[in-house]
Computed example of a mutant assay.
Amino acid sequence: MRPRAFDLIAFDWDGTLFDSTAIIVRCIQRAVVDVGGAMPTDQAAAYVIGMSLAEALAHAAPDVDPALYPRLGARYRHHYAAHQNDLSLFAGVLPLLHELRARHHWLAVATGKSRRGLDEALHTAELHGVFDGSRTADETAGKPHPRMLLELMEEFGVAPERTLMIGDTTHDLQMARNAGCASVGVGWGAHEIDEFHALGAVQVVHSVRELHDWLLANA
Results as ranks from 00 to 15, higher is better:
55 E>N: 12
77 R>G: 00
97 L>S: 08
158 V>H: 12
75 R>E: 09
23 I>T: 15
38 A>M: 06
72 L>M: 05
57 L>N: 11
50 G>K: 04
123 H>E: 05
5 A>W: 02
20 S>A: 14
89 L>N: 02
40 P>F: 02
67 A>Q: 15
41 T>Q: 07
129 G>P: 07
76 Y>T: 07
204 V>G: 05
142 G>K: 03
104 H>L: 07
149 L>W: 13
46 A>L: 09
124 T>V: 09
201 A>R: 08
169 T>S: 15
60 A>N: 01
8 L>M: 14
168 D>V: 08
143 K>N: 06
49 I>L: 02
116 R>V: 08
126 E>M: 09
101 R>K: 15
173 L>F: 05
82 A>C: 05
134 S>K: 11
134 S>D: 12
167 G>Q: 08
136 T>Y: 08
122 L>Y: 10
153 M>G: 07
192 E>T: 07
3 P>F: 02
139 E>Q: 13
75 R>I: 00
127 L>M: 11
183 S>L: 04
6 F>A: 03
194 D>W: 05
135 R>N: 08
12 D>I: 03
212 H>K: 11
145 H>A: 15
102 A>L: 09
166 I>P: 13
5 A>D: 06
183 S>A: 15
64 V>N: 04
70 P>F: 00
145 H>Y: 08
105 H>P: 14
73 G>P: 04
201 A>V: 09
19 D>M: 04
43 Q>P: 05
22 A>D: 15
116 R>Y: 08
206 H>W: 10
145 H>S: 13
87 L>R: 10
74 A>C: 01
83 H>C: 13
83 H>M: 07
91 A>K: 14
120 E>G: 07
80 Y>Q: 07
169 T>N: 12
193 I>S: 10
165 M>D: 04
157 G>E: 07
189 G>I: 06
162 R>N: 09
146 P>I: 08
34 D>L: 10
214 W>C: 03
112 G>A: 03
51 M>E: 10
128 H>K: 14
157 G>T: 12
90 F>S: 13
80 Y>T: 01
20 S>C: 03
